[in-house]
Every structure is written in structure tokens, then in C-alpha cells.
């Protein structure tokens, strides 16, 4: 058995099985977040795609790639969003280099 099954994305609602009330609350919140507001659905779809990559969640990447296309995004915009997420992850790793410097400096003469 693979750890990630493509069909599991369509089975997401099965997670409601033991606590349907909690899943219902989650879905209401999840869907409300994606509606047009101060940000458009289009912009939110790109944010979702970026976060999906930062989380490295294959289900979310699959779902939000589709959502982006159906919101009118193109590959150039989607790729920029992915780079934004990746750059932030890279920067977050890199700034921890100062922790390493601090640690090394603390014990160095």
C-alpha cells in the first residue's frame, strides 16, 4: 500500500465518520474562506496553491492546481505562486543559519 493514494482525495469526507460535527464545522470554514471577499477567488486559489507547496501536501497540490485553472489562472501565475512559497521556505531555512553561527560563536574562542 502506498502512503498516498490519489483516490483518497475524493474520499476526504470519510474523515467525518467518527466526528461528523467537527468535519461539518471544518468544511463550512474551509469553503467560506475560498469565497470572493476582499480577495478574489482567483487570488485565494493562488494562495492555496502556494501554501499547498509549502506544506508539500500532494492532495492539496492536486486540488488547488485544478482550482487555480478553474479560477482563470495560467501556468505563469501558478508557477510564480509556487516560487513565492519555495523562496519563503528557502529563506526560513537560511535565516536559521544565524542560529548555527550563534551556537558556534558561543563555544569558540
Amino acid at each position: 500500500m502506498a502512503y498516498y493514494e490519489e483516490d483518497d482525495l475524493q474520499r476526504f469526507s470519510e474523515i467525518a465518520k467518527h466526528r461528523p460535527d467537527l468535519f461539518e464545522k471544518f468544511m463550512a470554514w474551509y469553503q467560506a474562506c475560498q469565497e470572493d471577499g476582499a480577495l478574489s477567488r482567483h487570488e485565494k486559489a493562488l494562495i492555496g496553491l502556494a501554501v499547498a507547496h509549502a506544506l508539500q501536501c500532494p492532495y492539496c497540490i492536486d486540488a488547488f492546481s485544478q482550482t487555480c485553472l478553474e479560477a482563470g489562472s495560467n501556468m505563469e501565475q501558478m508557477t510564480e505562486a509556487i516560487h513565492m512559497a519555495s523562496a519563503l521556505r528557502g529563506g526560513a531555512a537560511l535565516i536559521h543559519g544565524l542560529q548555527a553561527h550563534n551556537s558556534a560563536n558561543k563555544v569558540s574562542m
Binding site: S40, R41, H42, Q66, L69, E70, A71, G72
Partner: peptide, 16 residues
């Protein structure tokens, strides 16, 4: 759409 997905909302894609 050129692919297996639904078209975007008409008003927004028209503006784009």
C-alpha cells in the same frame, strides 16, 4: 478550456 477542467467564471475571464 484546453483540458479536463471547467471554465473560469465568465465575467472574470472576460475582464482578464
Amino acid at each position: 478550456p484546453v483540458g479536463a477542467f471547467l471554465p473560469p467564471p465568465q465575467a472574470s475571464i472576460e475582464a482578464d
